[in-house]
Amino acid sequence: MRQVEVVPGAERRRWRTEWLDSRQSFPVTGNFVHEDYAHGLLLVHNEDIVAPGEGFDSHQHRDTEILTWVLEGSIVHQDSAGHSGVIRPGLAQRMSAGTGVLHSERNGAGYRERDRLHVVQMWIPPDTTGVAPSYQELDIEGDLARNALVPVASGLARHRGESAIGLGNRHAAFHVARLDPGSAITVPDAPYGHVFVARGRVDYEGHGVLEQGDAVRLTANGGHRVTALTAAELLIWEMHASARR
């Protein structure tokens, strides 16, 4: 069934501690089976604010494609497979947990600094389980300055050799668009889609104005025009399969 569901940012689950403010589009905190609440292949979509010097100590993941997109500040990544990096805005990062990997993620600013970390982390399942863990990052800042929909990470055949980062799922692609006021992009038409307003305000064709934190979940739909009313940044998933059992 063709469907366009607008999800206001205020309706997301919120989990707060002394150092973390996490807004979660799908249930994460607690004993949940992620596939039961997924939209398409998207299992987790967390928007987190992390205080200086704080972060997530070493913890384990398995058979998950984890994509991290920083909006403000920096995040320090280290994992048990020997990968490490400092991720900043415009630097795409993908970790494939495979057979299992331990990793930590912390705000790159120290306790005595003031820079908060504002980051969106997204999970999808892999095509094949039980493979070796892998890691990839690439600076695509220059590509994002052109008021267009840019494939940041993809497993789709049509993006081979084009997208910045590969995904271990041949049915999914993650796009980002940074738009000046008045600029517009067209949402990919796919069995499942997820459009998230990471910054600014936009007009979503046929469904009105969306603010920062709002999202649109698409089923058997797409082709809509999204126009920036202010400077805006959109994170868009195009998915040709579902994780639901």
Rank of each mutant, 00 (worst) to 15 (best):
R14M: 13
W15A: 13
R16M: 15
R16S: 13
L20D: 00
L20H: 06
D21R: 00
Q24C: 10
P27G: 06
T29D: 08
G30T: 06
F32L: 06
F32A: 01
H34E: 12
E35M: 11
Y37W: 15
Y37C: 00
H39Y: 10
G40W: 01
L42P: 08
L42S: 01
L43A: 14
V44W: 02
V50P: 03
V50N: 04
V50S: 08
P52T: 05
P52A: 00
G53F: 00
E54V: 06
D57M: 13
S58M: 07
Q60P: 15
Q60Y: 11
Q60M: 15
R62D: 08
R62E: 13
R62Q: 13
T64R: 12
E65Y: 02
L67T: 02
L71M: 09
E72L: 12
G73C: 09
G73T: 12
G73W: 09
Q78S: 11
S80T: 03
A81G: 13
A81C: 03
H83N: 15
S84G: 11
S84C: 04
G85P: 00
V86S: 07
I87K: 09
P89N: 00
G90H: 04
G90T: 11
G90K: 02
L91S: 07
A92I: 05
A92H: 01
R94T: 09
M95Q: 08
M95D: 01
M95V: 04
S96Q: 12
S96R: 14
G98Q: 03
T99G: 05
T99E: 14
T99Y: 14
G100H: 01
L102A: 09
S104T: 11
R106V: 10
R106F: 14
N107H: 01
N107G: 04
G108D: 03
G108T: 06
G108A: 10
G110A: 07
G110C: 13
R112A: 14
E113M: 08
R114N: 12
R116H: 15
V119W: 00
V119Q: 05
M122H: 04
W123A: 01
I124A: 00
I124D: 06
I124Y: 03
I124R: 09
P125L: 08
P125K: 05
D127C: 12
D127W: 04
T129V: 13
T129K: 15
T129D: 14
T129G: 15
G130S: 02
V131M: 09
V131G: 14
A132F: 09
A132H: 13
Q136A: 13
Q136W: 02
E137N: 15
E137V: 13
E137L: 11
L138F: 07
D139Q: 03
I140D: 06
